[in-house]
Design a protein around this nucleic acid. Structure first.
Lengths: 226, 226
DNA sequence: TCAAAAGTGTTAATAGTACACCCATGA
DNA sequence: TCATGGGTGTACTATTAACACTTTTGA
């Protein structure tokens, strides 16, 4: 058989869909789009796009995210491939879902507005297109697992943050309240979360110490664990 | 925009690749194939196949597995989508990897022989085609996580098995020795692993009690946990 | 009788959970 | 002065890890 062996087989549209997580005022949010084309124009959907010929899957996901938010270097993780025959009511499309964690403050709002994209609270999501709801659930599930092992949450916080913010983030992701003292005890044991001399006075009169994630310390920690 | 909006975008060959795990004589094995077509004919590869037009992704994986082994109703889990531009040196192919757990005794050897497929020990794998090695590593990683939470290992054992077999299976998957007494203690706490009156005399003079996995009890357990 | 695998409990260490009060400050 | 969110430690419980000898039986 020659390389043309491949050509005996069908080809498919391949898309990426992004589950874009952000965090603000104590709640986990998703950047959703009012679908701008038919079929199902106007319905709420994840931000997606078709993969290009010369583009890696991961690159496609980053491109879609960048087109919508203007941000580069975002933390992303693949959720999985969704390929039921009739999942897209327009045409057969095999879609690979990725979730992204980003700092909402860095989003270019003009850009996302152009794409009719809006932040929605994860706990009160509208009805979503196709199997996008399933993608979101799976992404959340993956994120919950991930955040218990690796400090990926910082991607959603400003570079300086209070422990209360951090705890609220964890609570929003895990969907359950955490004990303040136990939470802080765990944080203090992580050498890569550093207290800074800075103080945040926005949410309390007394002021809360601001912390920072030290990536270098984290890498040391990783090596140490092997 | 009309449904023809889709047609502006490129299409791709989409394949599934199966990481087929089996267990025999204390070691974890993979069913590998000598690739039967060009390019790279004759190299070791995972068993794969192209997705058909009217076929769900999951269905494609099951079909490929069935064509190679003759077995239906196999435990499978998606590993993820692999879509680097040049991952396949022949043509662009986006591949979705699945791992499967099966009882080696049930494989139709004539059938797998036709496909030039052979079992290879996971710890001494030959060099694999393309990114198949990466797929195997990721599958193993997923399996390790899975087996700690859910009793999927039984898929690889005969319906009656000894605790020594079970422990060796876990050791092979986790890649580390386990304490016999702690292991058995854990097993005794699982109501869905039943001791039968049967005794296996194949590996010891004394004989070892044979156990069975009771799926019904397991489902009860699951419901109970919610 | 002895080699080879099966079977069996206890103790120590660790990790996780529950819980309530004082502090600093701006309004 | 008081309301608000920030900050702190200890005791209890549950889970996990370490560890060695006896039993059975076919060759």
């Amino acid at each position: 058989m020659s390389p043309s062996y491949y050509s005996l087989y069908p080809k498919f549209h391949v898309a990426v869909d992004c589950i874009i997580f952000g965090f603000r005022q104590g709640s986990l949010q998703l950047l959703l789009q009012k679908r701008p084309f038919e079929p199902r124009q106007g319905e709420w959907s994840l931000m997606g796009g078709f993969v290009k010929n010369d583009e890696d899957l991961d690159a496609a996901a980053h491109r879609v995210l960048n087109e919508l938010t203007g941000i580069h270097n975002v933390y992303m993780e693949q959720v999985g491939a969704f390929g039921s025959v009739h999942r897209d009511s327009g045409n057969r499309v095999i879609s690979v879902a990725y979730y992204a964690l980003l700092n909402m403050d860095k989003v270019d709002n003009a850009l996302s507005h152009v794409h009719s994209a809006y932040w929605e609270n994860v706990s009160t999501l509208p009805k979503l297109l196709f199997d996008h709801r399933e993608m979101v659930e799976m992404a959340l599930h993956k994120l919950r697992g991930r955040i218990q092992r690796q400090p990926v949450g910082f991607q959603m916080l400003p570079s300086l943050f209070t422990l209360t913010q951090l705890q609220q983030l964890y609570e929003a992701i895990l969907g359950e309240p955490l004990d303040k003292r136990n939470f802080r005890k765990r944080v203090y044991e992580m050498p890569f979360i550093e207290k800074t001399p800075e103080v945040d006075k926005q949410t309390s009169k007394r002021g809360a110490a601001l912390f920072r994630f030290n990536d270098l310390e984290y890498r040391k920690e990783l090596i140490f664990k092997l």
